[in-house]
């Protein structure tokens, strides 16, 4: 499968990476080579094979609904690059933000 710069730019946006045009062309090439290599998997017919999401045979691990002490707001925000009123400050959000 061939990878285009347009696709890489789209993926970079999804991943919130502001990659430069040089990086874009390098990445397109490098990823293209890797994906060419990965095409190898298409030799295998896996239609009837179940996927492995967890290698272990364990299931239904849950805990009791018991409160554990939280961090203090000071501890919680101690690493924050910008903090105000014990909350993390983020710059203004345009366009609904998610997009």
């Amino acid at each position: 499968m061939n990878l285009t710069e347009k696709e890489v730019r789209h993926v970079a946006r999804l991943a919130r990476l502001a990659i430069s045009s040089v990086e874009l062309s390098e990445a397109t090439q490098a990823l293209g080579r890797v994906l060419d290599y990965i095409d190898l998997l298409n030799e295998l017919d896996t239609d009837a094979v179940p996927p492995t999401t967890h290698v272990e045979a364990i299931e239904t691990v849950w805990r009791q609904d018991r409160v554990v002490p939280s961090l203090s707001p000071e501890e919680a925000t101690a690493n924050g690059p910008q903090v105000s009123s014990q909350m993390f400050v983020v710059p203004k959000i345009l366009d609904g933000g998610e997009g």
Binding site: W62, R63, R66, V67, L71, A76, Q86, M87
Partner: peptide
């Protein structure tokens, strides 16, 4: 295990897990 409360002080009901700190893992509440 943070308390599920309403109207508390900002970030007073947080821990490494719900802050998404590096290295944390979720454990499901039964």
């Amino acid at each position: 295990g943070c308390a599920n409360g309403f109207g508390q002080d900002p970030n007073s009901q947080t821990c490494p897990v719900c802050l998404g700190m590096p290295g944390v893992l979720p454990v499901l509440n039964g």
